Simulated assay, not measured.
Amino acid sequence: MSQPSILIVGGGAFGTSTAYHLSHRGYADVTVLDRFAAPSKDAAATDLNKIVRYDYPNPLYTKLGLEAMRVWKDPNSLFRDLFRPTGWIMSAHEMTRDFLKAAYESGVKEKRKGVKWMSIAETKSKWPEFTGSFDGWTNLWSPEAGWVPSGEALLRFATAAQANGVKYVSGNAGFAKKILYNDEGACIGVLTANGQAHLADIVILCTGANTATLIDAKDEIVARSHCVGIMQLTPDEVEKYKNLPIVDDFEQGTSSKFISPGSQTKH
């Protein structure tokens, strides 16, 4: 029995992962469509950095986070040497203390060592670079968390998928504008911005916030976003702050990921 042709719309983390794993499971006719070449500029994963952690109140997310952490740390994995184990301070005030409590309890249940509440005095003692008063902050310390250069990780993933036979189509030829159906109402492919019809036995949408432009999903999907600013540190600032952990204030919109010396820092 011949294998089906598979069309994946969207070359972000979900689309690229799907393509990579399908190709390694023996599917030989896999195509990824995206408006941009890998790593796609539309993808949320195409970023300077993303936090890698397992501190989730949701047990499923915790399980997935632990599985992912093992891959990031594996010296033989596709993503070797990308994980930066900086640790992570999660901070809350009135509205998000319950979230932190659930994250703490999840860490304790999984017997993760070092996850603990950290007072402001202890925080400033461990990292004297912090000079603010931190009024009203409740801090949870997660020592095993860290960050990865996620855009580079996505590029490695896509490159490996292509090396295993996955076809990537970008530009207007990869910009899906309309889903195509047959007379029975079954999806048979997509129409792209250049007028080309891409047909396949199986069509998989991995389109994130753009999903609602292709199907009526307003009752199932809500697109959300965050404002992000990037600061270039001076060499002196890099030296001063290079040993700081990730700091994430869930209520005041403060998140800092300090990247290696000489590069950028995201806030």
Rank of each mutant, 00 (worst) to 15 (best):
S2F: 03
P4M: 15
I8N: 04
G11L: 11
G12R: 13
G12L: 04
T18D: 11
H24D: 14
H24Q: 09
R25K: 15
R25N: 11
D29E: 15
D29W: 03
D29S: 15
T31A: 03
L33I: 05
A38I: 02
P39E: 08
P39T: 05
P39G: 02
A45N: 10
A45H: 12
V52C: 08
D55H: 05
Y56M: 00
N58P: 08
P59H: 06
L60Y: 08
T62E: 07
T62P: 05
E67Q: 13
A68Y: 00
R70C: 12
R70H: 04
W72G: 15
K73H: 01
N76F: 00
S77T: 10
L78M: 12
T86F: 01
A92M: 04
T96G: 07
R97Q: 13
A102H: 11
S106L: 04
K111M: 14
K116N: 00
S119P: 11
I120Q: 01
A121I: 06
K126Y: 01
W127N: 00
G136Q: 05
L140S: 01
E144N: 09
A145F: 10
W147Y: 05
W147H: 10
E152T: 15
L155N: 11
L155K: 07
F157M: 12
F157K: 09
A160T: 15
A160P: 06
A161T: 15
A163Q: 10
G165W: 13
V166S: 02
K167R: 14
V169Q: 09
S170K: 04
F175L: 13
I179L: 15
G185I: 09
G189A: 03
T192C: 11
A197N: 13
L199M: 13
L199D: 05
D201F: 00
I202F: 03
I204N: 13
I204W: 07
C206K: 10
G208Y: 01
N210I: 00
T213V: 06
T213S: 15
L214R: 05
D216G: 11
K218A: 11
V222Q: 11
V228P: 13
I230L: 10
I230A: 07
M231S: 13
Q232R: 07
L233H: 03
P235L: 04
V238T: 12
V238M: 11
E239A: 14
L244A: 03
I246Y: 02
F250C: 14
E251Y: 03
E251A: 02
G253A: 14
K257R: 06
F258A: 00
I259P: 02
P261V: 12
S263T: 08
S263P: 00
K266R: 15
H267I: 13
